[in-house]
Design a protein around this nucleic acid. Structure first.
Lengths: 245, 245
DNA sequence: TGATGTGAAATACTTCACAGCC
DNA sequence: GGCTGTGAAGTATTTCACATCA
């Protein structure tokens, strides 16, 4: 899934938390575990078994245990995991103990929706700035934030100590915006524009493309249709899938 | 990435296109190739090498060739791939030769944005119905479509021959909506609500959770910060990553 | 006893490297 | 000569199955 591979944290034996070198696939699932754990905590659960948490997160329990074992996480044999403790562990590994500031570039249709999405704030992200290249949009107030011109980025980045950039512009503008983000020191970008971004080493880009998701569903739909059309075909044997990343 | 595995199309030797049994990872990349191919076609390219297409799609060329070889696709050695032909092949495999109708449930913040997103129409999907459970939203017109009550789903599904359901409701409502979609025969669901859906076998669910993407970026950001903080640490060696699906 | 943590096996995916064809 | 298609090698991930421990 990813061309990622981080070298293990070198030397310094014994000191500090020591950032375990997690498999990408595990990292991609931790947020889901976290969400499930918060839901459990909200309903008064103090401990949970790997089986219970796994089903709440939509994975199988062996995978969950293996994932958590990478954190060096302590469950209690015969009992399960302490919900509060596990939340703290995962948040610490994901770097969510500090609130991260996000700059959102492009306040069109999708940008508006993202600016108003409360799922960010509730998970420790603060949309700290809205930017757009279109002068007619600059000055507009959305959700208590005033849209600024994208050329203000250098100032904004410093003022708000931006940690993550989100690109919600049309595809043709996306690369230029990415370049601007990189220029002001942003090293993590979430890209909603349907195009490939080229960025220097050390910058992480994740891409979300809504149309791609539909096309993947279309493939399975297409296949199911042709299978059931076959006379001898047994019924489809699919089970739920999720986006892995 | 997926608990998916389809049995190979049985018997019927010799007949029809014969749906090759593609690896999930390949399926997830085909839409990206398709996008890149359309861009190439728009700029007048008639053929493209695996190297050229790969870089336009953000993957390496060996992976691209392997992926295309699964389609049984014909490139020409020494030349490359015929752009138009390859577009047709991929569209046919993904089942995009017919326009698919989408029902979007939940017209809050995100739902509004999705309803207005033109990336769907341009890739062969038609938002055929908008639904919401909130009576105060029913009747509202968005982008030329009137919002209907979610209880109208059975009628709507038949009238518009809905092929894919998109859930953009708050998490607590999502499971009920999924059940309603399944009840009217929808077998492909794209879920934007931050929760796990349980659905019967044969129904495909893909999930997009914007907060999860940010949390994954947060992890890498966190790690980069602690690596550069270490005195002896070599510079980070990341390269771009993308969502796999 | 009952659930975690984990080697080892199985599977999936990626990359290499080159034969084969245009 | 250049580029595709692909076996084989290498990696990553998932799953199994059970030793281990509260």
């Amino acid at each position: 899934m990813s061309q990622h591979r981080h070298p293990g944290a070198p030397g310094r034996a014994g000191a500090v938390p020591a950032l375990p070198d997690l498999p990408e696939a595990t990292v991609a699932r931790l947020p889901e575990y976290l969400r499930a754990l918060h839901a459990l905590a909200d309903t008064g659960h103090e401990t949970v078994s790997s089986e219970g948490l796994a089903s709440a997160a939509g994975v199988n329990s062996a995978k969950l245990r293996k994932d958590l074992s990478h954190l060096g996480s302590y469950g209690t044999r015969g009992v399960g995991y302490d919900v509060t403790l596990l939340i703290e562990q995962i948040e610490s590994v994901l770097g969510l103990t500090q609130c991260r500031s996000v700059a959102l570039v492009g306040v069109g249709n999708l940008g508006h929706a993202l600016a108003g999405y409360d799922g960010f704030a509730s998970r420790g992200f603060r949309i700290a700035a809205l930017l757009d290249a279109d002068p007619s949009r600059v000055g507009e107030e959305i959700n208590g934030l005033v849209v600024r011109h994208v050329d203000d980025l250098p100032r904004v980045a410093v003022e708000e100590s931006i940690s993550i950039g989100v690109i919600a512009t049309p595809a043709p503008a996306a690369q230029a915006v990415a370049d601007q983000l990189v220029a002001v020191g942003v090293t993590s970008i979430l890209n909603f524009a349907p195009c490939v971004l080229s960025v220097p080493e050390g910058v992480d880009v994740r891409k979300v493309d809504l149309a791609i998701e539909l096309q993947i569903l279309s493939f399975h739909e297409h296949r199911k249709a042709s299978l059931t059309a076959l006379p001898g075909g047994l019924a489809a044997t699919d089970t739920q899938e999720a986006i892995g990343t």
